[in-house]
Design a protein around this nucleic acid. Sequence first.
DNA 1: CGGACTAACTAAGCATTGCTCAGTTAACCT
DNA 2: AGGTTAACTGAGCAATGCTTAGTTAGTCCG
Lengths: 198, 198
Amino acid sequence: MSTETSLPGTAANRRRLPPEERKRQLVAIGLQELATRPIHALSIDQVAEKAGISRGLLFRYFPTKQDYYVAVVGAAARRLLRAAKADPDDASGEPLRVVVRAFVSFIDRHGANYQSFFHGGFGADAQIHEIRKNLQNTMVERTLDATGTESSPANRVLLRAWWAMVESLAIDRTVDPVFTVDDVVDRAIEALPIPHRR
Amino acid sequence: MSTETSLPGTAANRRRLPPEERKRQLVAIGLQELATRPIHALSIDQVAEKAGISRGLLFRYFPTKQDYYVAVVGAAARRLLRAAKADPDDASGEPLRVVVRAFVSFIDRHGANYQSFFHGGFGADAQIHEIRKNLQNTMVERTLDATGTESSPANRVLLRAWWAMVESLAIDRTVDPVFTVDDVVDRAIEALPIPHRR
DNA sequence: CGGACTAACTAAGCATTGCTCAGTTAACCT
DNA sequence: AGGTTAACTGAGCAATGCTTAGTTAGTCCG
């Protein structure tokens, strides 16, 4: 593990990293730490210590704790979007099912962490809101593509609501799995509120 | 307004309130302030100043900022639950429609504030989570009652998801009203994922 | 090789904020 | 009037977000 706890380099074991790598290291630490606790319970000092650097340096890369948090949540969102997409090599002829299945099973794997990032702290904040909105819109886009539906404002609103439903089903499953993943996928597709081809 | 800004009672204009009244005053201030900004942007000092008391006193009633926040969100939840219920005098024979309509129009009236409280900060926190869970479960309960549906675990999961959908539709409406409130109510009822009597 | 330049990095320190506690004083009871 | 209770203050502590003057690792050029 490259994220062991260590004191800031006391003139001896100091390591100098290229900015991009350091940034990635810090975001990785955030991804790990924020999975199990809200942002207000994670201090800059703790992150710096985990990274083995001083507080000051962290502020060089992320001028504000908020900026750091946004970077971490953004990374989490990118992970989700990378996982929850239709496999381009898939030839099942059911692209919608593939997307939904990928989404539900991502939440299934990442369970509680998912909520930490996307229903966690700083929620009323503009930048975090932006990330969530982008996430929703991308999923709506994919659904429109997968079903060959016209991209009207009404359809988009309906699909955002539908994804909220799918998300709820998936999250509930991680707490008390009354349905299987396949059940959830089936019911979700049945409940699609817009006309779609088979 | 009883919540004007004033200095702590400097031995002269100090007012002594019974605990319940003071608590209510402080929660009322929170309800007002947290409607427009997240919790981390509201300091205890600011609340104390608005109330015209010292910091110390606030901690007498709410031993922790978190406790204060929980009290405020709890009050907001109670408001919502009081508003989003079927009128007992209603004789329309459509109790479900009445509940949904009340819920949607509550969000419509309180727009952005709704999100501040129920998708706002401290989200990963156990106590806040508890409030949200209670809110959801109560709405599910009311739906079961209104539709005369059996209270199975499966039905409860489905209804929680359905409410998430309704919530999404209602919130989207406050941003860009592509549907009318009645549209939302109609579509919501159509999309009910469980068998129900008319 | 070595001197100079860049920028990654540290550490001391400031202001704010959550929280504590010893003491003050308003209000009520007899 | 005196005494008791508890609402209330204010000084102060520790932690935390953030700033900045200065240090040092790494590289480039002669």
